[in-house]
């Protein structure tokens, strides 16, 4: 099928985030918990409107995609993640950008993820 022309495509925003966690978390674990938390806060209808997608996740940082008018709701929804596999976690949005490249360059490249070594 031919892809939609740019004017008809859904506009998106890319949220760069870091995950502050007690123990390392895998992509699958994060995905499962993310959809369960988002689903419990905004339900299936809200989730479909937000169009949340986990794009990349590596070394406790990554990018989430969402609809461009739903950044506030997406932000609120992902901050409700408190536990993954019984361990405490905390998602911190580093910044929002209109392109993946923008989000990566501005907020993720060369940024040291906050570790709780200084705290523990």
């Amino acid at each position: 099928m031919k892809i939609l022309p740019p004017t008809l495509r859904d506009k998106k925003r890319y949220l760069a985030f870091e995950l502050i966690c007690e123990h390392e978390v895998t992509r699958e674990e994060l995905l499962r918990e993310m959809f369960s938390c988002v689903g419990s806060l905004i339900g299936d209808v809200g989730s479909s409107e937000c169009g949340i997608r986990l794009l990349t996740f590596e070394d406790s940082k990554g990018i989430i995609r969402c609809a461009h008018k739903k950044t506030g709701l997406t932000r609120a929804a992902v901050t409700t993640i408190t536990h993954i596999s019984g361990k405490r976690v905390l998602m911190h949005i580093l910044g929002i950008s209109g392109t993946i490249a923008g989000a990566t360059e501005k907020y993720l490249e060369g940024i040291e993820v906050f570790t709780n070594e200084g705290i523990e």
Partner: peptide, 12 residues
Amino acid sequence: YFDLRAPWEMIA
């Protein structure tokens, strides 16, 4: 400290 949230998350 896991119960803290960043200011813009609080606003959201």
